[in-house]
Simulated assay, not measured.
Amino acid sequence: MALHNLQPAEGSTHPTKRIGRGQGSGTGKTSARGQKGAKSRTGYSRKIGFEGGQQPLQRRLPKVGFTSRVVKPLAINVVKYPAIKELKEITIETLKPVVNFSKSVTKVKLIGSEAKTLTDKIKDSNITTSGK
């Protein structure tokens, strides 16, 4: 079993520059940091998104709000749809042809002065009425 030499090839690497070791080194005095300014100071670390004092991009753009995971029910006024009163039982499937709402609707709330009288006809837990 041969041992491999894990050294880099001859002349392929350069010694690291030793910064701040006197004027003769070429990187003495200011240690290759220039004269003044934030970058020349010790402990400097630029904030993420910092643009030199200009308003950063993430603060220039408008906020994009959140979408609530709480599903709001579709309010249906019973007075506007008299055919709801004539239904034998009220479910989302039986309401769709009468009211004609989209497929994405999962909860319905019946409102209006006559909504309370329909509570005994409701057979779906996703349908509620206003009042007791």
Rank of each mutant, 00 (worst) to 15 (best):
K96D: 00
T67R: 11
I90N: 05
N100E: 15
R69Y: 08
K80Y: 12
A75D: 15
V78W: 00
K72S: 13
K63Q: 13
E86L: 09
E86M: 05
A75Q: 12
G65Y: 09
K63V: 10
K107H: 15
P97K: 04
V71P: 02
E89N: 10
V70E: 14
V99K: 04
S102F: 01
A83P: 07
K72F: 03
P73M: 06
Y81C: 01
V78T: 12
R69N: 07
V98H: 04
K96I: 07
K96F: 03
K63Y: 13
Y81L: 06
V79F: 08
T94K: 05
G65Q: 07
V79A: 15
N100R: 14
K80I: 07
K88M: 09
P82L: 05
S104K: 14
G65P: 02
L74Y: 02
E86K: 13
N100C: 08
S68L: 07
V71D: 01
S104D: 15
A83V: 02
S68V: 14
K85H: 08
E86P: 01
V79T: 14
K85S: 15
L87I: 09
L95T: 02
K85L: 15
V71N: 01
V64I: 14
V98I: 09
F101M: 07
E86S: 14
K85D: 15
I90K: 00
F101I: 05
E89S: 15
I76R: 07
L74R: 03
N100M: 11
E93Y: 02
K96L: 05
E93K: 12
G65C: 11
K88H: 03
S104A: 14
S102T: 15
K103P: 02
T67E: 13
K85C: 06
P82E: 13
T91N: 09
N100A: 15
Y81Q: 11
A83Y: 01
E86V: 00
S104N: 11
I84N: 06
L87P: 05
I92F: 06
V79P: 00
E89V: 13
F101H: 10
I92W: 05
K107W: 03
F101N: 03
P73I: 04
K85I: 10
T106R: 13
V98W: 01
V70T: 15
S102C: 00
F66R: 10
F101P: 01
Y81K: 06
V98A: 04
V99W: 13
N100F: 13
G65V: 10
V64S: 03
K72E: 12
T106G: 08
V99M: 00
K85M: 11
T91Q: 05
K63I: 05
Y81M: 05
K80T: 14
L74S: 05
V99Q: 08
I90F: 04
Y81A: 02
K72L: 12
E93L: 12
K63F: 10
G65S: 07
F66W: 04
P73L: 09
T94G: 09
A83N: 14
A75S: 08
P73F: 06
K63L: 11
F66H: 11
R69F: 02
A75W: 09
K72H: 03
K80L: 11
V71Q: 10
P73W: 04
I84C: 02
I76S: 02
T94R: 07
I84Y: 08
R69Q: 12
V79E: 15
V105D: 09
V79C: 08
I84D: 02
